[in-house]
């Protein structure tokens, strides 16, 4: 389904009349990406060893250029490639599967390289709507969810494929954690487990410049 949608968007983009030459002002992109060690559970309790969760990202990007500045926003949603597993455990977590939707907003500088594309770097923040399932050692499965924000940066390059179509690669980093949402230790009575959205994302996509 995802591949079909991606192919459709690509086909529509390529079939748009090439006479509508854009001026690199407003670009709309679709991308795939990856996020390694989703949840950073091994950082929440340094005594555990984990087989970390990896997720695929699917998202839309909106990029607005004004002279040498740019604004980049959009949204990303994640699909777990594997659930995280705690192998050596002093707590109560056995498995976890976390999903989130991120709405990033970056502002920065762009460096157009004539006839080739551009390089850009920006800083900003993102809102995260996270949810997931945590399987405890008792066998119980707990649903968790949290909404919060974080800060980070983006660095990317775009290569001109067609006059208004560009292939792009981006490196995003966010630092973000939710409040405690689940009790995963036996020693104390409070909730201690939080959703950690921190980490690097690598994104590949195609952007069509509308204006």
């Amino acid at each position: 389904m995802l591949i079909k949608a991606f192919t459709c968007i690509m086909m529509v983009s390529l079939c748009l009349p090439l006479t509508l030459r854009a001026n690199d002002v407003l670009g709309l992109g679709v991308h795939l990406g990856a996020h390694h060690n989703v949840g950073y559970v091994n950082e929440q309790d340094t005594s555990v060893l984990t087989d970390p969760q990896n997720s695929m990202l699917l998202g839309l990007a909106l990029k607005v250029n004004a002279a040498f500045f740019f604004i980049r926003t959009g949204f990303d949603t994640t699909f777990p490639l594997n659930q995280g597993e705690v192998l050596e455990n002093s707590g109560q977590v056995e498995k976890y599967k976390l999903n989130y939707v991120a709405v990033p907003f970056f502002l920065g500088l762009r460096f157009p390289v004539k006839d080739r594309g551009e390089f850009y770097m920006g800083g900003g923040m993102a809102y995260f709507l996270g949810s997931g399932k945590v399987t405890l050692t008792s066998g119980a499965t707990e649903d968790i969810s949290a909404v919060n924000y974080g800060y980070g940066f983006i660095t990317g390059v775009q290569f001109i494929v067609l006059p208004d179509v560009r292939f792009y690669m981006e490196w995003e980093y966010f630092d973000a954690r939710s409040e405690a949402v689940l009790k995963t230790q036996t020693a104390n009575a409070w909730d201690n487990f939080y959703i950690d959205y921190t980490g690097h994302r690598i994104i590949l996509g195609v952007m069509y410049y509308l204006l």
Partner: peptide, 17 residues
């Protein structure tokens, strides 16, 4: 304060508090 990881481990919640 029973935190293994500094400020992250202090990030707690409990019903009634």
């Amino acid at each position: 304060f029973q935190s293994h990881n500094g400020i992250d481990g202090m990030n707690r919640s409990m019903e009634g508090y």
